[in-house]
Design a protein around this nucleic acid. Structure first.
Lengths: 198, 198
DNA sequence: GGGATCATGTAACAGGTTACATGATTCA
DNA sequence: TGAATCATGTAACCTGTTACATGATCCC
């Protein structure tokens, strides 16, 4: 176990592959999985995964122990490497789906992938994810607002620099606020689906 | 000349180095430039650049011809590689500073770096950049809105998938709208600085 | 004597892009 | 005949992260 917590984006591509395998009765092969990332597919609007990286990730998942693989002869067609999700893989998938992302910038890729699979698996899981994510972003927004308030007055630091720092923070607050508003809408539409009024 | 137009993010780190060299009378060495990216510096809030990557980028800039380098003995201290921006480098910097970013996601890093240097160089350049960026994002927002309107009705495509695609587009619209609002504020504060009423 | 600073890097890894290689088969 | 599909990859490149190597000198 190399405890290399990158902490910065938790491999959304690999978890998406786990999610697909979990959904498709636990098994699948590369070419098959690649279709889910091709044009027109909902996942393709969020995450891009070329064949090269896809096969790479499958091998890495096998090394980690989240999937196992076996060769399946196809008669006339080239043989397939069929991958099967393991119990460890399913556990990891659930863990990942329950965890909100920490930064606003991870919403547009990693959170959307989580949301996609959470909805497919269990609408309550999705609702919990949305709610956790909202809490995380609320804290983030408050922290940013405090940083804004704590900016030094322009007579201590060059005025240009303070103005720039303020703009940077204001952008982050704006982006976080926009994501929060969007999450609220999401929650409402999820609730509407859940009680059948959608 | 390998015409490898990645088109996706135009090396903000290297352009930031060009910008710093341009500002500091055209020359500088690695250790010196590294200070601008260390904690507390305004650039550090936007772009992260560890020494390893910094020296790598300087060499790459030299290969491209945007800087030249010469060794400067320091007597007792270790000798410096002093880098000097070339005419081609200055031209490239101006070109880059005049160009808005194409995607909303590039606002939080690349656009902010452009803004930082545009302001240092020439406030009118900064105003033009902001205005161009606003135009670009407006078009982007309209395109996203049209895509939203063009989503297929749920009876042709699985309802879940359409709902998901709608959420994805709604997030992008929200993020783009937030960036536009922020740009408008920026423009106002830039104008206030320019006519001395700030 | 010992840590911070000056100054430049390397090594090992992780993630990602584009293009290409291989070779059979189905279908227009 | 030739393109698309099935199926799996490699090669070469780029960006980026963390950690470490080297060796002197300044300052306490």
């Amino acid at each position: 176990m190399s405890e290399r917590r990158t902490n910065q984006g938790e491999m959304p591509a690999e978890h998406a592959l786990l999610g697909l395998l979990d959904r498709e009765r636990g098994t699948g092969h590369g070419y098959d999985l690649a279709r889910s990332f091709s044009e027109g597919q909902p996942l393709a609007e969020v995450i891009r995964l070329e064949p090269g990286m896809l096969y790479h990730h499958l091998k890495k998942l096998a090394r980690t122990g989240w999937v196992t693989s076996s060769v399946e002869p196809q008669g006339t067609r080239p043989p397939r490497q069929v991958y099967q999700i393991t119990e460890a893989g399913r556990a990891e998938l659930r863990r990942w789906l329950a965890e909100p992302v920490s930064h606003t910038r991870e919403i547009r890729l990693e959170f959307l992938v989580k949301l996609y699979f959470a909805r497919h698996l269990d609408s309550r899981l999705a609702e919990r994810l949305i709610s956790e994510q909202r809490n995380t972003l609320r804290e983030r927004k408050q922290s940013l607002t405090q940083q804004l308030a704590a900016l030094p007055p322009s007579d201590q630091t060059p005025a240009d620099d303070v103005a720039f720092s303020r703009h940077v923070l204001e952008l982050r607050v704006a982006q976080t606020r926009a994501a929060l508003t969007w999450l609220n809408q999401l929650e409402q539409s999820a609730a509407a689906v859940a009680d059948g009024s959608g």
